[in-house]
Amino acid sequence: MRLFLLGLILIHFSAISQRTVPPGLLKNWKKTDITRIDGSPYYDPETLNVDFDLNFVSKDSVDLFNSGRLQRIRYQVLEDSIIKVSTLRMKIEELSEIKLVLTALESDELDFRLILSPKHLYDLTYTPEAYKAKNGEVVFISESGRVEPQFRHKTMTPVDFIFENFGFPEYRKGGFVVRFVVTSKGDVTGVKVVASSNNRFNDKLIQAVLKTKGLWEPAEFKGEKVSVEMEYDFNLGYEDRKITSQVDSIAYSKMYLDYGTNFIKDGAYRSAFNYLKKSIDYNPLNIDAYFKHAEVSFALKRKEDGCESLSYLLLLEQKKAVPLYEKYCK
């Protein structure tokens, strides 16, 4: 799944043999949910929590907005309502005034189903904080994934860009909070350092923020361009590193899943069995590990272990596990 997201964000391609764009596709869509192709839920927080917008601005260009950064990517519409973005192919399963459903092709060995809604309709589901400026203009408080201006840069988020141009010495410790407004026209105004551990560097930080001028697209709320107040906190070296014995259980689970999958390809099922069990132990919500563990268990004629993995998949509402359980465990 991470490869899909990175491919969606980073890779650019040249479109060829473009077909007619389906009516209703050319609008700004907000990702609201992601499931497996059959509708079964995901439990991987890294997948569930990824937030992005897809704004189909023309018949061959889509703006991807993710982590505060805006990037324009080329896409194609192929036969059978298939959209190709980079090397990723998705089928338009449903398209209406209120919903877009994109499904990965199983032939590409990807398993996800994206549900999106028009951004202006999504905006009706919440009320952002706002205040009235001295000039009478309403200014919204930035909220990630909801109301925020878009920073158009190929490689950097706005925080990275400002930090890069700040030039704060690496050997020093410091803490700074900077606040500014990106107007409804994309201008940068009202830059102010509201907290600082060393006032000598305040002007440098302000100048770094001003260098973002010309790189912002204004935020939109309910289809209207709006002004938004931004605030970035730069905590530079104040948090001491602590030695800990804790491990990233999600990362370890994925690592052992990869080991197990490779052992299956080599026909080393006993080793695969052991590594897949470790993968499940580190993350009891790793769906793919359960499926692979069941596969290996049945290959080793360990029916009880295989049925145990399938039973957990049933508890996790995985639809593909139902026929397998009926076939092997009843």
Rank of each mutant, 00 (worst) to 15 (best):
R36A: 12
V50P: 01
V50K: 05
G68P: 01
G39R: 09
R72W: 04
N66W: 09
I73W: 01
R69G: 03
Q71Y: 01
Y42T: 05
R74T: 15
R74A: 14
D51L: 07
L48E: 03
L54F: 07
D51K: 05
R72T: 15
I37F: 00
F56I: 06
L54Y: 05
S58P: 00
T47P: 03
I37Y: 02
I73D: 03
P41E: 05
S81R: 14
V57G: 00
D80L: 06
R69E: 05
F65N: 02
P45N: 11
Q76N: 15
D60A: 12
Y75D: 04
Q71V: 15
L54I: 10
L78T: 07
Q71H: 00
L54E: 13
N55E: 13
D44C: 03
D60F: 09
N49S: 11
D60W: 06
T35V: 12
V50F: 04
Y42P: 01
I73G: 01
P45Y: 12
I37T: 15
L48S: 02
D53L: 06
R74N: 15
E79S: 13
S61C: 07
L70Y: 03
T47I: 14
N66L: 09
D63M: 04
D63Q: 10
N49R: 09
S40G: 04
L78K: 14
G68N: 01
D53W: 02
R72Y: 09
E46L: 12
L70D: 05
L78P: 00
P41C: 06
Q76F: 00
D80V: 02
R74F: 12
N49E: 07
L54M: 15
N66K: 04
T47E: 10
I73K: 14
I73Q: 13
G68Q: 05
R72E: 15
N66P: 00
S67Q: 12
G68M: 04
R74M: 08
S61E: 15
E46N: 11
S81M: 10
D44S: 07
D60N: 15
L78R: 14
T35C: 01
V77A: 06
S61Q: 15
L64I: 15
L54P: 04
V57L: 09
P45F: 13
D80M: 04
E79A: 13
S40A: 07
R36W: 01
N55Y: 11
Q76P: 00
